[in-house]
Design a protein around this nucleic acid. Structure first.
Lengths: 196, 196
DNA sequence: TGTACATCAGTGAACGCGCGTTCACTGATGTAC
DNA sequence: TGTACATCAGTGAACGCGCGTTCACTGATGTAC
């Protein structure tokens, strides 16, 4: 019998606790401080205990990164469900993506950090999958050709992802991103998609 | 009198030698191995010598990153000069950007790595400035409105930068980028721009 | 239900490593007179 | 042109730190009979 939520991982799920601690750390300071020693300390456990659940520090980092991506995917799904109309739903995906990047810059950077090791399972849900579903809907409504779905997907993702990085100040290029800036970008993306 | 090229930095320019060593390292392994100790070793100098030229390890990293960005900007300029016609020149900027990211993934990632310290001087040339010049040309030719230049710049940069990251496999999303993929992306970007 | 034992999930101390940075120093270069 | 001296650009040894990982261990849990 479980005590519903992880409380004491003397016997509880240390694995989940470590990932949650990593997400907390990510929220606060991005990709720094995702090391084994640090995270073990933050859940009051000896470093060795980590290796009961993860084969290496990199695979723990990969699990944290995956969790952050799934968090993003969930928000995209929720945003799409909240509005009606094919175009509005598609646009909501982009808005949610950029909003996530701006409001959770730490999680965002961790979500796409390079890991030496692939995650143990596939992303579920995956942001990429959510985007493809949205594009399929555009296709079903006859807004774009079936043959164009792939390049439209790459284009939409690139634009929104690139803008998110830009606005995030990760690049030393330009920092600001007002709601109008975001809206204009999504307009241009939409124009590009319809032109396909 | 100088011996034309930095040979012995017992008396020569260690500063330049360190940055060049950093670029070599970046080319080989990206943002790893850009530390003071490592770079000092790679030019056969004691770590302390670095601090004669840079106030900290971070400011050395910032200088290397800046140099990588300027390298990118140079290639964009050269690509634009090699073709004629407003549209072709603009497209060449995007192609050069993506080509740089694909052929020099290490330099590309270092160019946009987050540094704790700003570079000592402004980028010269700056990739962002080169892009803006290209957009101004579009404007002069009446292809886009002057009022749209800012959002077009953000859009073009975002799309191309995002695609480059994507194709680079930095994101665990999708890896491939054939010349056709690149061409299609740039078509869609162009459609978006003209729709502005 | 009671006991014996395997397994599981942790402890705690230690390792070697490379890091950024500081110290006091040295020897070569450039400059004033 | 020659000497005295300040400055500049390096050496080399050392520091404290946190890292990932390994070791032998311990105590609690679950299971067989």
């Amino acid at each position: 019998m479980e005590t519903v939520k992880a409380k004491k991982y003397h016997h509880g799920n240390l694995e989940e606790a470590l990932v949650l601690a990593g997400l907390r750390e990510a929220q606060a300071s991005g990709t720094r401080n995702l090391g084994v020693t640090h995270l073990a300390k933050s859940v009051s456990v000896s470093p060795m205990a980590v290796y009961r659940h993860f084969s290496s520090g990199e695979s723990l980092k990969a699990a944290i990164s995956q969790n952050a991506r799934e968090n993003l995917a969930h928000r995209m799904q929720a945003a799409a469900l909240a509005v009606s109309g094919t175009r509005n739903r598609f646009r909501a995906l982009g808005e949610a993506y950029i909003h996530f990047a701006l409001t959770e810059p730490g999680l965002f950077s961790v979500a796409f950090v390079a890991c030496d090791v692939p995650p143990a399972r596939e992303d579920d849900p995956s942001a990429w999958g959510v985007l493809q579903a949205g594009i399929q809907e555009l296709c079903d409504d006859g807004l774009i050709a079936q043959s164009a779905t792939e390049s439209v997907a790459a284009f939409a993702w690139s634009s929104v992802h690139g803008f998110a990085m830009l606005a995030n100040g990760l690049d030393p290029v330009r920092p600001q991103a007002t709601p109008e800036d975001i809206s204009k970008l999504l307009d241009l993306v939409w124009d590009g998609i319809l032109g396909a």
